[in-house]
Design a protein around this nucleic acid. Structure first.
Lengths: 213, 213, 213, 213
DNA sequence: GATGAATGAGATTTCATTCAT
DNA sequence: AATGAATGAAATCTCATTCAT
């Protein structure tokens, strides 16, 4: 999995006070709105440009295509999606809870983008690659964490760490999808507690007194 | 959740020996192939017709649109996807394993359709509704099963049964998606065992001697 | 102008009790209905066949095309449209009135056909020719009648008989069109009286006591 | 009858020197030619675009459909068709003659449009409405004029002014149709004199010395 | 830097017509 | 005599993209 992310092709060249910069921002924001309403394949360049208050031709001054615009949005959101604060003074249970919570919040923040991204990834190798690039660190971290727990005797050693990491991250991301994209109404606290409990118990992590609730 | 599914608009009118019936079958099979290669939005009626060995016009003799064809495929696959054999002489753990296995096999059988279906559902209310109709029984069954285990003291009563049912079915279906649609290579046995273990342990179900491996 | 009308290509070959004869009748009647609703150009062979209760393919067993069907209808109606009863014991004024009345009644009887016919004639030479063939006798008769009145000193000799015949027959047919095709509501008596008066007075025919009203 | 005509949707937005304006003009002119050759229903957008020297897509930049283009042409021609110069120092006979002449000239100028218009009106309510809107003023004016003559004792009071107005305007427009659309060859002077004489005499208007032809 | 205008290349859909049964 | 089935050949309309200003 590549850790070298291509730097953003557009904004990196642009001073933040320029007119061009503003135009790009408008297009990016318009795109998120249009993608939310129509999805990636059905979104039209014309709609995005119109919503941004510029002409279609202007769109092409900045992005070679709809795909390129999505690429821009994805690369822009990448750091925020990957960000994690590692706190060392947490119990295993707390660590599961805080990373679940962080993931759900990041997903919520970028729900539309996540949706469109996975839509595009289904038929576009580069987008699929970027998605892998993003999932990768999560999976790797989860897998490492499972192995550590197994070594410490805190998690059942019968589990295949790799498969379990895939399954559990999938559980959370799938839950986030139905919640933030499909719009099923969940309560945050209950959602976080349920996912945390399932995750932790499935690995055999025991709840300590401090973990309440 | 509705259990009355509309009967299929095409085949129900057609004797199975007629030429028309054969044409519909060819179109349906061709559609699955084309959908697999191009996805729903990018698939073209022309490609489907060509692959089926008929003219575009013939397509429209049977289906009013691409959407209608998908609807046909979905309704046709519905019974197979919903089918379950309830065996009563299983331990809880075995029951988790066999339903996981059955789900994965059904998903594999209809992987392309599941993919296209979810793609279309993202922007089509009827398809989304059908997807809910299909998920519904699974969710309800899972929820009931969790409650029963809780009542019997076999599963942790701290869990919210509804949320847990969503999370766990999502875990399995998401795993199936990456496996059969995204094409990540998993070994069947290991996948089934891992998912079963995670599911069972997360609920606090204990493995009995018979449940090996 | 040709007086030899081609004999009808279909019914002439058909015994009136046969199934084929009935099918042709159904198609002809259905066609009039469909033409009335959609006009000639927008009427579809499929609609006509469906309304007749037969398949599209059956249509082509009897008519080579939509045009041919219209030709059939026109030729069938021809005799009725041309029919006139010449009564010799009428005053000139009465003769104008009775031919006006007869024309209006014939037009009403065949309003849809007249409409479709003129629609088709605008872009089809054969139909245009048939329309001329039908108008011809009227024009000729009118022209002769004007000349006779002029010779007898009953009509102004300043008028060009040919032009006047065209104008006056056009007046009546145009009135019939707005009445029976466009659906403007007229009272029959008033319509006949007005048209008769205009026609007669324009030629200088004087009303005699018997002509009341 | 509405006198508020919707202002033209296209040209009103366009400066007369712009390229777009020129394109619209080319399309409008091409349309008249194509309509003349093929009629409205058979005319194809592709032919119009080709004749105008632009692509089909360009057509749709300006008109949403063939119907909309016709609407444009009709609204554009409206003022010219309604224009009348009222001269007060004419005898009744002269007034009939000059308005007949004016009508025929306007019809000739826009013969193709009149033809297509009536073709479309037969199956399109908006076009039919516009046609009524255009006929309305003529009919009203004619009717008023007949009543005035009746009050002055110059025209037979036995006539129904409304019916007579319909019949006489129909006579002239029908004559114009056969002349300019069907292509029957008439001499202008003789046509105008005949129509004028018929119209005037039918109402009982007497020719004065000045009226010689 | 922005955009008005134009368009190539299709996509969907329609329908008159034919063919084999 | 009738028709189920298939289709060729368009017709309409769309949209991403380019060009010239």
């Amino acid at each position: 999995m590549s850790t070298e992310l291509p730097s953003n092709p557009v904004t990196s060249r642009l001073g933040s006070g320029t007119r061009a910069f503003r135009t790009v921002r408008q297009l990016a924001e318009a795109a998120v709105e249009v993608f939310e309403e129509s999805g990636f394949h059905l979104a039209q360049v014309g709609d995005i440009a119109e919503r941004a208050g510029v002409s279609r031709a202007t769109f092409y001054n900045y992005f070679a295509s709809k795909e390129e615009l999505l690429r821009y949005l994805v690369l822009e959101a990448f750091p925020a999606l990957l960000a994690t604060r590692e706190t060392t003074d947490e119990t295993p249970w707390q660590r599961v809870r805080s990373s679940t919570d962080a993931y759900l919040r990041a997903y919520e923040q970028h729900a539309t983008l996540m949706h469109v991204w996975s839509e595009a990834a289904a038929r576009n190798d580069e987008m699929a690659g970027l998605l892998r690039d993003m999932r990768g660190p999560f999976l790797a971290r989860t897998e490492r964490s499972i192995r550590r727990l197994q070594e410490q005797g805190l998690a059942s050693s019968a589990l295949d760490a790799t498969y379990a990491a895939h399954a559990l991250t999938g559980m959370v991301s799938n839950f986030a999808y139905t919640w933030f994209v499909e719009g099923v109404a969940y309560e945050r606290d209950r959602a976080v507690e349920t996912l945390t409990t399932l995750w932790a118990c499935s690995l055999g992590i025991e709840k300590e007194p401090d973990d309440l609730p």
